[in-house]
Amino acid sequence: MSTRTRFQIERDLATLLANFNGREYSDPIGPETLFFGDLGMVSIDAVILAEKLEALYGQKLPFHQFVSQMSQRGVQDLAVGDLAAFLQTHLR
């Protein structure tokens, strides 16, 4: 159970991703926005993002589970909503 709503988490992610790693993204970021296709992120960014989210929410998160889920899904892109769902499940 999380004290933050799904919507709030999505807003957190949108703020974080609008200016991430020296790169901006000026279109609106919503649950459908894709990490690789839209935001132009690369694999290392996932690791950095994980660190930033752990710092933001003050807890360790099982990102390695999330990563292996991602690689199981093959080369499909990842949407912001997917990450939000994961966070909602695991945030205390």
Binding site: R23, E24, Y25, S26, G40
Partner: peptide, 8 residues
């Protein structure tokens, strides 16, 4: 600087 993934 402007460095927007959209292409700016």
């Amino acid at each position: 600087q402007l460095r927007d993934s959209l292409g700016i």
